[in-house]
């Protein structure tokens, strides 16, 4: 464990906590893409299959349970909570997220480290996480005004994988140059997808104005 990875995990955890707080405190999920949240549940379920078979550390197991629990509860709130589900922008959140999941799965069948169920599904989760934010970014462009909590949520979500990139650079130089192409390239794609959001987020923060993405 290095400081960059810990910072990345904490940033990721903070983003999820901010989203849960927004939903529970305001009883609203306006501006949040249910499609992206559902993709994240799939990412965690397919990535943490070895949760009960492989013990890495107390921290690792705890965080996996927290990520699984919070992401599933967010989807539950948006789908079934009587008040929250009324605030879901169903007609704007129209991204066909299966168009994202299927190519990722096919790619995982083609390009992976080893052809086992655990490894292929883990690889699928890495590819899927890279593109899972797309429905959310599309929804933000359609939303007239983005509330601060939603903006912060997306920013932290993008920042966590950027910190993971730094963690991988650090591990490359400190762990006898172990190469991990799959997460590296996927993480690079994932972080790049946030590039224009980062630009508008930082600009709105500097000029102290409302965050607005160009349509």
């Amino acid at each position: 464990m290095n400081v960059f990875r810990l910072a990345g995990d904490m940033t990721h955890l903070l983003s999820i906590i901010i989203l849960l707080l927004k939903i529970r405190a305001t009883k609203s999920c306006t501006g949040i893409s249910l499609k992206t949240q559902e993709l994240y549940v799939i990412v965690f379920l397919t990535r943490y299959l070895d949760l009960f078979t492989k013990y890495i550390s107390f921290y690792n197991t705890t965080m996996k349970l927290v990520f699984l629990g919070t992401s599933i509860s967010i989807v539950w709130y948006m789908r079934y909570h009587k008040v929250v589900k009324q605030t879901y922008n169903k007609d704007q959140d129209t991204f066909r997220h299966y168009f994202l999941a299927i190519p990722c799965f096919l790619l995982a069948l083609l390009i992976h480290h080893e052809f086992t169920v655990i490894e292929v599904l883990w690889t699928f989760s890495i590819y899927l996480e890279a593109v899972a934010i797309l429905p959310q970014l599309v929804l933000l462009q359609r939303s007239r005004n983005i509330d601060n909590l939603t903006g912060n949520y997306v920013f932290l979500l993008g920042a966590y994988r950027a910190l993971y990139l730094v963690n991988w650079v650090y591990r490359y130089f400190t762990e006898n140059h172990l190469v991990r192409w799959i997460p590296w390239l996927s993480g690079l794609v994932q972080t790049t997808l946030y590039a224009d959001f980062f630009y508008y987020y930082i600009k709105s923060w500097k000029n102290n104005e409302k965050l607005q993405l160009p349509a």
């Binding site: 995990d9 990721h12 070895d50 890495i56 690792n60 480290h113 080893e114 883990w122 993971y164």
Partner: peptide, 10 residues
């Protein structure tokens, strides 16, 4: 490259 990846990250 059958490097068994030890998935020690989240």
């Amino acid at each position: 490259r059958g490097q068994p990846q030890s998935h020690d990250e989240l």
